[in-house]
Amino acid sequence: MAWQSNPESSGIRNISNPVELASASAVDMASRAEWSDEVLMLAIANQDQLAFAVLYDRYVDLVYSASYRVLSDAQLAEDSAQDVFVRLWTRPETFISERGRFVSWLMSVTRNRAVDELRARGRRRKREGGSLGEPDEAAEPLFQGEPEDPQLNAELHEEQAAVRRALRSIPHEQRVALELAYFNGLTQQEIAAHLHEPLGTVKTRIRLGMQKLRRTLQEEV
């Protein structure tokens, strides 16, 4: 049984030393590129820098994109995304695989970090008077030909496409309410004030939007 030969939690490092797994060879990177997110996180918990490099390459654009969607500012998004990855390296134990998928946890950390930044810098007030919910399309270019991008795995791409389809299937006003809450960090009261709608209407839109999103994604699966 392989486990018997590697019983220690520090086994990754203990074994890697004699065969020089810590060296940044292409073979090592390639083998880790096949590991699941959860296995990479275990390796990162054992200070495996190559595992971190693989996870970084796998998700950096996604984290940056979500940060940008919240902050609408390239520099702020870059700072926020950096913090997410530094935390991923310094505190990998905060991800607990039994509680859910890695990508969900990563999105949660990314969103919370960006929204904190948004609130801390008082940018929300500025946005409420401007293009709230519709981020400024600034200098950073959107991906061209995303599906062919080798940096992102096919499964993640498929999932992103499914979520986009699901969101497109939701009535516009419900989708706007969900996005204002998630990406702009607005409470129901704030959304109601921004949209000049009654609070009850906003609550209903969020409830129906989440129901529809849940149903649609379940059907997709």
Binding site: D61, V63, R69, A81, S108, F183, L217
Partner: peptide, 22 residues
């Protein structure tokens, strides 16, 4: 519910992160 809500984050328009970030 959190897993579902965080799926919304996946729908953000994809942008290329600056190379200097790494």
């Amino acid at each position: 519910a959190e897993a579902l809500a965080n799926m919304v984050g996946l729908a953000a328009p994809l942008r290329r992160a600056p190379a200097r970030m790494k």
